Simulated assay, not measured.
Amino acid sequence: MLAIILRARPSRAASRANLDDPQELEPQAPGRRQFEWTIRRALSMLSWAFCAMTGWTPAVSQSQIVGIGLVQGAGLGFLFVPLSSTGLATLSPKDRTEGAGVYNLARNIGSSVGISVVNALLTRNIQINHAEIVRHVTAVNRAFDLPAISQFWNPVTDAGRAALDSLITTQAEIIAYIDDYKLLMIATLAVFPLLLVFKKADGGGGGHAVEL
């Protein structure tokens, strides 16, 4: 066993030669096929997570939230790590510091714009859904003649109107969140065709890099 370990251990000369050769220290990006499969797996996980979130209601269980959150986190890890490593591997060593800064800046700007758009759509859809539901809630609606409903949501009394408005707002928020999750799912699925534009890099940092 000791002889096997000694034979497998690299010599000091070989280690020093690897350190002296700058080509040995350059990161190697995955090939195109491995890159595409990794990104495809990440996008599939994110699409499934957003699709599952379209069925969420206030009654969603904690286990569902944790499970879908784990899948979504793993999908983001499979997505951004290959993108950053592959993108920086196409650059020469002297440009990788600036490239990492530009990449992080673009990622932060993109996430900020995405969050702002989603929040704006959420607020807008809540108001639209609330107004749409209120159109069907009138004092002449025969559903309020039922004792089980008029006991809690009587549009004639102040307490009944307040409870009814709270219920309508909750339903409007649920629909708005579902619309946002559906939009994110469609946006994630729309990224799949972009994988066709990736090609092998002719030069740059690594011989196996993939670039746009």
Score class of each variant (00 low, 15 high):
152 F>T: 15
142 R>C: 03
74 A>S: 10
33 R>C: 03
149 I>Y: 01
79 L>K: 02
51 C>P: 02
94 K>S: 12
40 R>E: 02
89 A>R: 00
107 R>W: 06
85 S>Q: 07
140 V>G: 15
10 P>K: 10
46 L>S: 01
170 T>Q: 15
5 I>Y: 13
93 P>K: 02
141 N>I: 03
29 A>V: 06
200 K>H: 07
61 S>A: 15
100 A>P: 04
153 W>I: 03
203 G>H: 13
141 N>H: 08
110 G>L: 01
96 R>F: 04
25 L>H: 11
199 K>F: 02
34 Q>T: 05
181 Y>C: 12
140 V>R: 14
33 R>D: 09
165 D>K: 09
37 W>C: 03
130 H>Y: 14
44 S>I: 03
15 S>Q: 13
53 M>D: 01
156 V>S: 13
133 I>S: 01
124 R>P: 02
133 I>Y: 07
53 M>A: 15
99 G>T: 06
171 Q>K: 09
172 A>N: 05
40 R>K: 09
59 A>H: 13
7 R>H: 11
208 H>A: 07
49 A>G: 08
114 G>P: 01
93 P>D: 06
166 S>Q: 15
28 Q>C: 05
136 H>V: 03
202 D>Q: 12
19 L>Y: 12
88 L>C: 05
103 Y>K: 11
70 L>K: 10
71 V>Y: 02
35 F>V: 00
187 A>R: 01
3 A>G: 09
202 D>T: 08
17 A>S: 13
113 V>F: 12
105 L>G: 14
40 R>T: 08
64 Q>R: 13
209 A>T: 11
189 L>R: 09
39 I>V: 04
113 V>L: 15
194 L>Y: 08
116 S>M: 14
109 I>Y: 05
76 L>D: 01
155 P>V: 03
190 A>H: 07
130 H>R: 15
128 I>S: 06
126 I>K: 08
88 L>Y: 00
15 S>K: 13
73 G>D: 08
87 G>V: 04
157 T>Y: 08
23 Q>K: 14
157 T>C: 07
28 Q>L: 11
116 S>D: 09
203 G>Y: 05
175 I>N: 06
24 E>P: 08
68 I>C: 09
132 E>I: 11
108 N>P: 00
200 K>I: 03
83 L>N: 10
180 D>M: 14
84 S>L: 11
200 K>R: 15
107 R>T: 10
9 R>I: 13
14 A>F: 13
95 D>C: 11
